[in-house]
Simulated assay, not measured.
Amino acid sequence: MTGGIVLVLGKTGRNFAAGMSGGVAYVLDEKGDFAERCNMAMVELEPVPEEDDLMEKLLHHGGDLDHKGRVDVSGDMTSHDEERLYQLISNHVHYTGSVRGREVLDNWQAFRPKFRKIMPVEYRRALIEMERMRMSVAAE
């Protein structure tokens, strides 16, 4: 993958993320063994952080924020993971009727800590540097 977002609710094969130079993947790691199947040469694994304020809006407004179901892939890919992940699953359920996706949403507090975010190290570095440059220009 060189860009974009991937959501995996099932088991992955071995060598996941081999050659991944950009983008973000969210993988449901129910058994805690995903790292054994992930190629760590270019990526880092991290938990999906809890974002209480954003999720409060999602959970109490029918799972939809101001963007009406759209997932922002052009914004800050280094933050807002829980919101993005929840919206991706909500969209998946909406468009496919996924029973698995509905189970995850209905039991969000239990499932959220089992997701892993996979992001290439150099991609993260480039995004952070671009944000620093943007902030520097805006401050001038």
Rank of each mutant, 00 (worst) to 15 (best):
N15M: 03
L88E: 01
P113M: 07
I118K: 00
G101C: 05
H61E: 14
L9N: 09
L65T: 12
F115M: 08
N107T: 08
T12P: 07
R37I: 00
V6S: 15
A139Q: 06
N91M: 02
L127E: 04
G23D: 10
N91R: 02
S98E: 00
L85P: 08
Y26Q: 11
M119C: 08
E129F: 05
L88P: 01
L28F: 13
R37W: 04
V8S: 11
D81K: 11
V104R: 08
T96G: 12
A138G: 05
P113S: 12
G19N: 01
R124V: 01
M20A: 04
E131S: 05
H80K: 03
D81I: 04
V121L: 09
K114P: 00
H92L: 04
N39A: 02
M130D: 10
E129C: 02
E122M: 09
R84I: 13
E122Q: 08
G101H: 03
M135C: 06
I5E: 15
E131M: 10
T78D: 06
K57E: 10
N107K: 02
L28W: 09
Y86L: 05
R14P: 13
A17Q: 02
I128C: 14
S90C: 15
E131Q: 10
G101D: 03
G32E: 00
V137M: 10
V104F: 07
V71T: 11
T96H: 06
E44R: 11
R134F: 04
G32S: 03
I128T: 12
H61K: 05
E46M: 09
M77P: 07
G10I: 02
M77Q: 13
E46V: 01
L54Q: 15
M20V: 05
V48R: 10
T2Q: 06
E103L: 12
G13V: 06
A126K: 08
G69N: 01
E51V: 10
N91W: 03
S21Q: 09
V73T: 12
D106L: 11
E46K: 08
G62I: 05
